[in-house]
């Protein structure tokens, strides 16, 4: 496998790790992602997807853990309305992150960057 193929493989592995971190392997997926980041070379497609994965997972961590935590803190643990907002928000936003990560995974398989026209 030459260097270019290797980076393509790392690109799709990074996108996969990012999706796994958002779904069935939280934290473990992220550690795997950091490990992949260290392997990739600068200016390659592998590095691009590793960085993208890290970014999206950090954004997800803020949106899902920190915002949810704040909602609980400000709303109070024993109010039904807190849970109304926390659960609906968490489920919906989490699903959106999964969908975005899925699209990123699909893009990584073609070896292209994320941003070209969608349709």
């Amino acid at each position: 496998m030459n260097a270019e193929e290797l980076e393509l493989k790392r690109a799709s592995l990074s996108a996969l790790a990012s999706l796994l971190n958002l779904t069935v392997l939280p934290v473990i997926g992220f550690i795997f992602l950091l490990f992949l980041y260290k392997q990739t070379q600068a200016q390659t497609i592998g590095r691009y997807y590793a960085v993208l994965g890290i970014k999206i997972n950090l954004a997800a961590a803020i949106a899902l853990i920190i915002v949810t935590g704040l909602m609980l803190l400000l709303g109070g643990f024993y109010s039904p309305w807190t849970w109304v907002f926390v659960i609906s928000y968490f489920v919906f936003v989490h699903a959106l992150f999964i969908l975005v990560a899925t699209w990123i995974l699909v893009r990584s398989w073609t070896g292209k960057k994320l941003t070209t026209t969608f349709l």
Partner: peptide, 18 residues
């Protein structure tokens, strides 16, 4: 439909709690 679902989810969570 997303909003119908979100509002019904909200209604459901409040209903379960109360």
């Amino acid at each position: 439909m997303v909003f119908i679902t979100l509002f019904l989810t909200g209604a459901g969570i409040a209903q379960v709690y109360l």
